[in-house]
Amino acid sequence: MPGGRQDLCDTPKGKRHRTLHPRQHDLAQELPAHIPTVASTHLARELRAQRDNAGMSQEAVAEEMGWAESKLYRIENDKSRVLQRDVKRLLKLYETEEKQAEVIAELGRLAGEPDWWHQYSGAIPEWFQVYVVLEASASHVFGYQSELVPGIRRPKATRDRSCPLRPSPTPTSRSTARSRFE
């Protein structure tokens, strides 16, 4: 926390390091971990594909970037946020074509922007957030109900209370349609 109080502590080896004030520590624990978005998932997939196309191993890329392998693993599996400058460095390392690099860099910019529902992420269980991400980015939503099957094989008592009949896909006369449901 900028301007917050920090305490100096001695370690067993005699080195001094800064620790967070208890209030800062509580706030740091309340912050959500990286919340994947559709853009960040696509970015992770693209970065992995670019590394594969370059024929480089995770170990070689991590060494070249000065990172631990685990950081690259988390980036490629959308487990942690990736900075825009790191995206550009990776694309340069992978020797990605300029046009494709611009598209992926734009994806990196979009991946850093929170979706509308991020402000409610504390109220949404982590396992359910992937469904919220997918729904938020969907252009169409389809419903399927296997429990209700409208048709003529239902008792008359339940037929009268259910939803109105949908038009038949094949043309039928009114007398034929009435005889089916009586």
Results as ranks from 00 to 15, higher is better:
residue 1 M to I: 00
residue 2 P to G: 07
residue 3 G to I: 02
residue 3 G to Q: 03
residue 4 G to S: 08
residue 6 Q to M: 07
residue 8 L to A: 04
residue 8 L to P: 01
residue 11 T to A: 03
residue 11 T to I: 05
residue 14 G to E: 05
residue 15 K to L: 11
residue 15 K to M: 04
residue 17 H to G: 07
residue 17 H to A: 05
residue 19 T to K: 09
residue 19 T to P: 02
residue 22 P to S: 10
residue 22 P to R: 09
residue 22 P to I: 07
residue 23 R to Q: 09
residue 26 D to P: 01
residue 27 L to D: 12
residue 28 A to K: 03
residue 28 A to W: 06
residue 28 A to C: 08
residue 28 A to Q: 08
residue 29 Q to S: 07
residue 30 E to V: 01
residue 32 P to V: 01
residue 36 P to G: 00
residue 41 T to F: 05
residue 42 H to K: 06
residue 42 H to Q: 08
residue 45 R to C: 05
residue 50 Q to T: 05
residue 51 R to I: 04
residue 51 R to M: 04
residue 52 D to V: 14
residue 53 N to T: 01
residue 57 S to K: 15
residue 57 S to V: 09
residue 60 A to H: 10
residue 63 E to Y: 11
residue 66 G to N: 07
residue 69 E to Q: 12
residue 70 S to D: 15
residue 73 Y to Q: 08
residue 74 R to T: 14
residue 77 N to M: 02
residue 78 D to Q: 08
residue 80 S to W: 06
residue 84 Q to H: 11
residue 84 Q to W: 09
residue 86 D to M: 01
residue 87 V to F: 04
residue 88 K to Y: 03
residue 88 K to Q: 07
residue 89 R to C: 01
residue 89 R to E: 10
residue 93 L to A: 04
residue 94 Y to F: 00
residue 95 E to F: 04
residue 96 T to R: 00
residue 98 E to K: 06
residue 98 E to Y: 02
residue 99 K to R: 02
residue 100 Q to W: 04
residue 103 V to G: 04
residue 105 A to K: 03
residue 110 L to Y: 06
residue 110 L to P: 01
residue 112 G to W: 00
residue 113 E to L: 15
residue 114 P to R: 06
residue 120 Y to D: 08
residue 122 G to V: 02
residue 122 G to R: 07
residue 122 G to Q: 06
residue 124 I to F: 09
residue 124 I to E: 06
residue 125 P to R: 13
residue 127 W to H: 12
residue 130 V to G: 14
residue 133 V to W: 11
residue 133 V to Q: 15
residue 134 L to M: 11
residue 137 S to L: 05
residue 138 A to E: 13
residue 139 S to H: 14
residue 141 V to T: 14
residue 143 G to K: 09
residue 144 Y to Q: 10
residue 147 E to P: 07
residue 147 E to G: 13
residue 150 P to I: 14
residue 150 P to V: 15
residue 151 G to M: 09
residue 152 I to P: 15
residue 153 R to I: 08
residue 154 R to D: 12
residue 154 R to G: 12
residue 157 A to R: 13
residue 158 T to K: 14
residue 159 R to T: 10
residue 161 R to A: 08
residue 162 S to G: 09
residue 163 C to V: 10
residue 163 C to M: 12
residue 165 L to T: 09
residue 169 P to I: 06
residue 171 P to D: 14
residue 172 T to A: 13
residue 172 T to R: 14
residue 175 S to G: 10
residue 179 S to Y: 09
residue 179 S to N: 11
residue 180 R to I: 13
residue 181 F to S: 13
residue 182 E to L: 04
